[in-house]
Amino acid sequence: MQIFVKTLTGKTITLEVEPSDTIENVKAKIQDKEGIPPDQQRLIFAGKQLEDGRTLSDYNIQKESTLHLVLR
C-alpha cells in the first residue's frame, strides 16, 4: 500500500509499505529515499509519536495515510 510522509519543509514523500511493516522499517525506507538517518527521524500520526517496534497496523495506519516527519 502507499502512504505519504510530509516533511517540515512541506515536501511529501510517497512510500510503498505493508501494514505489517514496523515503524523502524518505514524509517529505513525514508533513509533510502531521503538520506536521513533513522535516529534523527520522528514520525507523527494523528498527533502521536510512533514507536520503532510497533507496526503500521498497530496504529491503524491505512493506505494513503499521511505521516508527519520531524527531525531531531
Score class of each variant (00 low, 15 high):
Pro38Leu: 13
Gln41Arg: 02
Lys27Gln: 03
Gln2Glu: 13
Glu18Gln: 07
Thr12Phe: 04
Pro19Phe: 14
Ile36Ala: 07
Thr12Trp: 06
Thr7Tyr: 04
Asn60Lys: 04
Gly53Phe: 14
Leu50Gly: 01
Val5Ile: 08
Thr22Ala: 12
Lys29Ile: 09
Ile36Leu: 08
His68Asp: 05
Asp58Lys: 03
Ile23Asn: 01
Gln31Phe: 11
Thr7Gly: 15
Lys63Cys: 03
Thr14Leu: 12
Glu34Phe: 09
Asn25Thr: 09
Pro37Ala: 14
Ser20Val: 08
Thr66Gln: 05
Gly53Cys: 03
Thr9Trp: 09
Lys11Ile: 11
Lys27Gly: 01
Val26Thr: 13
Thr22Tyr: 07
Arg72Asn: 12
Gln31Met: 08
Val26Ala: 04
Arg42Glu: 15
Gln41Asp: 01
Val26Trp: 01
Asp52Lys: 05
Thr7Pro: 10
Ile23Val: 15
Gln31Leu: 04
Glu16Thr: 14
Asp21Ser: 12
Asp52Pro: 06
Gly10His: 14
Asp39Gln: 07
Leu69Lys: 00
Val70Glu: 11
Asp21Ile: 08
Gln41Thr: 11
Lys63Arg: 11
Tyr59Cys: 02
Ile23Thr: 12
Glu64Pro: 03
Ile61Lys: 01
Pro38Ala: 12
Ile44Met: 06
Tyr59Lys: 01
Gln40Lys: 04
Lys29Val: 05
Ile36Arg: 03
Asp58Cys: 02
Leu67Lys: 01
Leu50Phe: 02
Pro37Ile: 07
Arg42Met: 14
Lys63His: 11
Lys27His: 03
Asp58Ala: 11
Ser20Thr: 10
Ser65Lys: 06
Gln62Ser: 13
Lys6Leu: 07
Lys29Ala: 09
Ile30Cys: 02
Lys63Asn: 05
Gly35Ile: 03
Gln40Arg: 06
Gly35Arg: 09
Glu24Thr: 06
Ile23Gly: 03
Ile61Ser: 01
Leu15Asp: 00
Val17Ile: 05
Val17Glu: 01
Asp58Asn: 09
Pro19Tyr: 12
Gln40Asp: 12
Asp52Arg: 05
Ile36Asn: 10
Glu16His: 15
Lys6Pro: 01
Leu67Arg: 01
Asp52Ser: 07
Ile13Glu: 02
Ile13Asn: 02
Asp32Gly: 12
Leu71Ala: 11
Met1Gly: 04
Ile13Tyr: 13
Asn25Asp: 15
Leu56His: 00
Arg54Asp: 09
Val26Glu: 00
Leu56Ser: 01
Ser65Phe: 10
Val26His: 00
Leu43His: 01
Ile13Gly: 02
Ser57Met: 05
Phe4Thr: 05
Asp52His: 14
Gln2Met: 15
Ala46Phe: 09
Thr12Ser: 06
Ile61Leu: 04
Gly47Pro: 01
Lys48His: 15
Val70Lys: 05
Ser57His: 12
Lys6Arg: 12
Gly53Thr: 11
Glu34Gly: 05
Ile30Ser: 01
Arg42Leu: 15
Leu8Met: 14
Gly53Ile: 14
Thr66Ser: 10
Val70Ser: 04
Gln31Cys: 02
Ser57Phe: 10
Thr12Glu: 11
Leu50Asp: 00
Thr9Glu: 09
Glu18Ala: 09
Asp39Phe: 15
Ile23Cys: 02
Pro19His: 14
Thr22Glu: 11
Val17Met: 07
Gly10Met: 05
Thr14Ala: 09
Gln41Glu: 02
Thr55Pro: 05
Glu64Ser: 15
Asp58Tyr: 10
Arg72Asp: 12
Gln2Tyr: 12
Lys33Glu: 15
Thr55Glu: 11
Pro37Tyr: 12
Arg54Val: 11
Arg72Ser: 14
Lys33Trp: 10
Ile30Pro: 00
Leu15Cys: 02
Tyr59Ser: 04
Glu64Asp: 13
Pro37Trp: 06
Gln49Ala: 12
Ile3Pro: 00
Ser65Cys: 02
Asp21Met: 08
Leu56Ile: 14
Glu64Ile: 07
Thr22Met: 08
Leu8Asn: 15
Val17Cys: 02
Gln31Lys: 12
Leu43Gln: 00
Ile61Ala: 02
Phe45Cys: 02
Leu67Glu: 01
Arg42His: 15
Gln31His: 12
Asn60Ala: 13
Asn25Lys: 10
Lys29Cys: 03
Thr66Pro: 03
Glu64Met: 06
Glu16Leu: 07
Ala28Cys: 02
Glu16Pro: 08
Leu15His: 01
Ile23Leu: 11
Glu51Thr: 07
Gln2Gly: 13
Tyr59Asn: 03
Glu51Ser: 04
Thr22Trp: 11
Gln40Glu: 12
Tyr59Asp: 02
Gly53Gln: 09
Glu51Trp: 03
Glu51Asp: 13
Phe45Glu: 02
Glu18Ser: 05
Lys6His: 09
Ile13Met: 06
Ser65Trp: 04
Asp32Gln: 08
Val17Ser: 05
Lys11Ala: 06
Tyr59Val: 03
Ala46Trp: 05
Gln40Ser: 14
Phe45Asp: 02
Pro37Val: 14
Thr55His: 14
Ile13Thr: 15
Ile30Asn: 01
His68Cys: 03
Glu64Thr: 13
Ile61Phe: 02
Gly47Leu: 09
Ile36His: 12
Gly10Gln: 15
Ile3Met: 08
Gly47Gln: 06
Ile30Met: 06
Lys11Leu: 15
Glu24Met: 15
Gly35His: 08
